[in-house]
């Protein structure tokens, strides 16, 4: 992870967004997930967008190693359709979640592609069927400029316990 250059964040004249805009966007995303608005959440991703949760620390590639999630648009659509299906047993009753996003920082700006890499921390508390679980990790959003807002070109969540054994995980983190 590159060190964050505070000067870059505050002084870059070509940066059309204030740092708070990125944070607002992440909060919006978290809220969609917590409110189970999964289809709208999927809509935040670009058509070539990827949602990745690696299965080992420092995992370099999703192609030569298993991942907890590695969804392109096709898999994301299946996942969301399933979350909306009345017979998704592992969501009967549904999970209730609250996401806490912290420490949002601009890591990198790619002006030629209109993309920004945002680092943040995430904590998700999930309650379902008498059981409360805690997920925590570092996340990296590659946001692509679109009009006055962004879409997610790539989201990676590095869970601190990514290589541990998990009970069923039904909702995205």
């Amino acid at each position: 992870m590159a060190a964050v250059d505070m000067d870059t964040m505050t002084r870059k004249p070509e940066l059309a967004f204030a740092p708070g805009d990125f944070e607002l966007f992440l909060h919006h995303e978290a809220r969609l997930l917590d409110e189970r608005r999964f289809r709208e959440w999927m809509g935040l991703f670009t058509d070539d967008g990827i949602y990745w949760v690696p299965a080992v620390p420092g995992q370099e590639s999703p192609l030569n190693h298993v991942s907890l999630f590695y969804d392109d648009r096709t898999h994301m659509k299946t996942r969301v359709a399933r979350l909306e299906h009345p017979m998704i047993h592992v969501q009967t009753p549904p999970s209730r979640t609250v996401h806490q996003i912290g420490r949002a920082m601009l890591e990198e700006t790619q002006n030629d592609r209109g993309e920004f890499l945002i680092y943040s921390t995430v904590i998700m508390i999930e309650y379902r069927q008498d059981n409360q679980r805690l997920f925590g990790g570092h996340q990296y959003h590659r946001l692509r400029r679109e009009g006055s807002s962004f879409r997610i070109a790539h989201k990676k969540v590095d869970l601190v316990n990514c290589d541990g054994p998990f009970g069923p995980i039904a909702v995205p983190i």
């Binding site: 907890l68 299946t78 998990f166 069923p168």
Partner: peptide, 18 residues
């Protein structure tokens, strides 16, 4: 194969969770 196994048999898969 690796990618398809993620959606069928990971802890966060479509199949194994149910």
């Amino acid at each position: 194969n690796i990618r398809l196994l993620n959606v069928t048999h990971s802890a966060a898969s479509f199949v194994q969770t149910d």
